[in-house]
């Protein structure tokens, strides 16, 4: 039994190490150099210059802010809706397979096709949403070029795309909740809502933690949806960088402009930021536990 834990994790670490970790570490190397995508062999040592430049760059701080805002307004409703949806899918349903597959269609639909639909919906001139707003007497909004409007629009795409995905994850975990817990709860006279609150949610805690972590990471790296929402030169996130997330800023720098060194520094800053959040989280929860 002693060696077996390592045997169990080794396939993962071998493949993961070779084809994910090593290339990632290579980008850490890039982040310490001045290196252009067009001239990879010509690297000059830059030390922490790339990182220092970021700290003094308004674009970096802006994209951090954008990421935070879009992250909050997309992740929170998405996870709450997902857990509710999973709860509903967990009832005895007619055609349960069909419902589940349908909930996964946003994730399976081609992002490009989906974004085109949203671009049409949010179109400034003649889009359906502005048309509806007009009905209630609101002036048309230039969604792509408005500060909060664009963040809202991008968030709706994210929510649309990932809610069903998270619901399935919750659903799987709900299946593992022992039935006795519900039986004893209902014997105690708990109604459905109380059962949900006092049995389901506590039992789902590890999975909720998982989805929160993964969604936070996903929100930090968000770039596909805003990129396509922006259309031509979408990597800028609008003329005022209103929806240029960190992921998009990195894509713009590395892939469009070709500053690979700087883009790598952005990537690793994202790592450091998340690490910082994790450490703070750990300290706070430890403090809380002590005080209890």
């Amino acid at each position: 039994m002693k060696a077996s834990p390592y045997a169990f994790i080794s396939p993962f670490f071998i493949f993961f190490g070779a084809f994910s970790l090593v290339p990632l570490l290579y980008t850490a190397w890039y982040s310490l150099h001045n290196v252009q995508l067009s001239d990879l062999d010509n690297q000059t040592w830059a030390g922490l210059d790339n990182y220092q430049n970021l700290l003094s760059s308004d674009f970096f701080w802006n994209s951090l802010w954008v990421t935070l805002v879009i992250g909050v307004i997309s992740t929170v409703p998405q996870l709450i809706m997902a857990i509710g949806l999973a709860h509903l899918l967990n009832y005895k349903l007619r055609g349960s397979t069909v419902w589940r597959v349908v909930m996964l269609t946003p994730y399976a639909t081609s992002v490009a096709a989906a974004t085109l639909v949203f671009v049409l919906l949010y179109s400034w001139d003649g889009g359906m949403i502005n048309w509806l707003l007009d009905f209630v007497g609101v002036d048309p909004i230039n969604w792509r070029e408005s500060d909060w409007g664009s963040k809202f629009a991008v968030s709706t795409i994210v929510i649309w795309r990932w809610t069903g995905y998270n619901a399935l994850i919750y659903l799987a975990a709900m299946q593992a909740i022992p039935a006795d817990l519900y039986e004893s709860a209902s014997l105690d006279g708990a109604n459905r809502w109380q059962q949900f609150r006092h049995v389901t949610v506590p039992q789902l805690r590890p999975t909720i933690l998982f989805t929160v972590v993964v969604s936070t990471i996903g929100a930090t790296q968000l770039f596909g949806e805003p990129l396509l929402f922006g259309g031509v030169s979408g990597s800028k996130g609008g003329s005022g960088h209103d929806y240029q997330t960190l992921g998009l800023y990195m894509y713009d720098q590395g892939w469009v402009i070709g500053n690979l060194g700087k883009a790598s520094a952005i990537a690793w800053s994202m790592f450091l930021i998340l690490l910082l959040i994790a450490v703070i989280n750990l300290l706070v929860s430890r403090r809380l536990r002590k005080s209890q």
């Binding site: 396939p11 071998i14 493949f15 190490g17 070779a18 090593v22 290579y26 190397w29 990879l40 062999d41 010509n42 690297q43």
Partner: peptide
């Protein structure tokens, strides 16, 4: 200059191969 850094890259790649310990599995 070019040639030097190019071998530099190869070296890291070789290191990566060693680090992955998985030559047999990969094959």
């Amino acid at each position: 200059m070019r040639a030097r850094t190019r071998t530099g890259r190869r070296k890291v790649v070789v290191l990566a191969a060693v680090a992955s310990l998985g030559a047999g599995l990969l094959a």
